[in-house]
Simulated assay, not measured.
Amino acid sequence: MSKSLSTSVSSGIIANFAEITKIRLSVSVVFSSIAGYLLGAETVNFTILLLLCLGGYCMVGASNVWNQIIEKDLDALMDRTKNRPLPSGRMSVRLAFVLATLLTLLGIVILYTINAQTAMFGAISIFMYVSLYTPLKTKTPLSVFVGAFPGAIPFMLGWVAATNTFGIEPGTLFMIQFFWQFPHFWAIGWFLFEDYKKGGFFMLPTGKRDNGTAIQVVLYSIWTVLASLIPAFQVTGSLKLSRVAAVIVFGIGVWLIYYAIRLYKLKTEKAAKQLMLVSVSYITLLQIIFVADKFLS
């Protein structure tokens, strides 16, 4: 095999791995876990942090691979997903199955070396995402509610990895990211409505891009912001937020709610896409603010 051909094959394998594990989504989930760990840790253990990153990526990657195995035929129907490794034929289902199995086992083992609770929550996340959320996507809009549970685990997972305990602090982190899931995924479901319809996915709460859906987007955006501000009232154990940080969180919360209201008023794909981007920025900035506040105040 020539050097150029070998390089091409290697880059193709890496590209397929990155795509089937949804590298950008997986990295963002790992980022949430890191934020949770930094919030919970009294002193930062970089070995545990590395294990959390590796184990977390394996678990999220495994969930994504299992998801794409199950939805292979449906993915082929949608423009957004038809060029993924499985529907395009660049990867066989057998190879994807082996990869998903290895990532699942590796992820659980790595997280177990941190502590048993971290591994347990990681395993619950995979189970709920693959066995409940994925099959429900073509059956009921309640799939988003079910999917919000595994989606909210990473933020609290980091705290559990740092402390080996589950209490009000990781519960609060879970609640924040749980409420955030709804405006985020409903915004995606809105601007990809026609494409999702090709695959038979029901992502919007009313099944339509209507007032009912838009009002719920606004309400859940408000609840997300309110949940984010709870630590400012010193009622969530060792998870606290200073007044300055609370004002900043409130500011980005107003930003999120503004774009949710904008979607309610305009009801356009562009407004939904803008809300999606703002929601991603919101949760990222929120986690940075929480961590910075802990170490700077």
Rank of each mutant, 00 (worst) to 15 (best):
G199I: 00
M78Q: 09
G158K: 07
N211R: 14
V30T: 11
M1Y: 14
S281N: 13
L142K: 11
L219G: 03
L74M: 14
T236F: 04
V98D: 04
G107A: 12
Y264I: 07
K3H: 13
V98G: 01
F121I: 02
D210P: 01
N164K: 13
A152K: 03
L132N: 05
F182M: 10
T7Q: 12
I289L: 04
L241Q: 00
K267L: 14
I108M: 00
L95E: 10
A271V: 10
K265F: 12
V278Y: 00
S242P: 05
G147I: 08
T81F: 12
G122R: 00
I14A: 13
L54T: 06
K240P: 00
K294S: 10
I70E: 11
T140H: 12
V254M: 11
L173G: 09
S88T: 07
G147H: 08
E71A: 08
W180M: 08
D73I: 08
S125H: 07
Y129Q: 00
G251W: 04
S11K: 15
N211Q: 12
K22T: 01
S10C: 12
P205W: 01
A123M: 15
A227D: 08
N83I: 13
M120V: 14
L102K: 07
I114D: 00
D73F: 03
S88Y: 02
T43A: 05
L102G: 04
L136N: 09
F127Y: 14
W223K: 00
F178Y: 14
S88A: 13
A245Y: 10
K240W: 03
Y37S: 03
K3M: 14
I48D: 14
L5D: 07
T140V: 10
I34C: 14
R80W: 04
A35F: 10
V30C: 11
V44A: 07
L25P: 01
L157H: 11
L241N: 00
T224P: 01
S228W: 10
W223N: 03
A62V: 00
T284C: 02
T268S: 14
L275E: 00
N45W: 01
L256A: 05
M203Y: 09
T118C: 12
A96I: 09
I176Y: 04
F46W: 15
P150C: 10
G36C: 04
L38D: 03
M276K: 10
G61R: 09
A100I: 01
W186D: 08
I215P: 02
L25W: 03
D210L: 04
A152Y: 03
A292S: 13
L106A: 15
G147F: 08
L296H: 15
Y129L: 01
Y220C: 03
I215N: 11
L277N: 15
A123D: 09
T172N: 11
F193N: 09
L102C: 13
T101Q: 12
G158P: 06
Y258F: 15
K265A: 12
N83A: 11
P135Y: 13
V291F: 12
I13H: 07
A227F: 13
D73Q: 13
L106C: 13
L226E: 02
W223D: 01
R94W: 05
E269L: 09
I34M: 15
P85E: 01
M175I: 14
K267I: 03
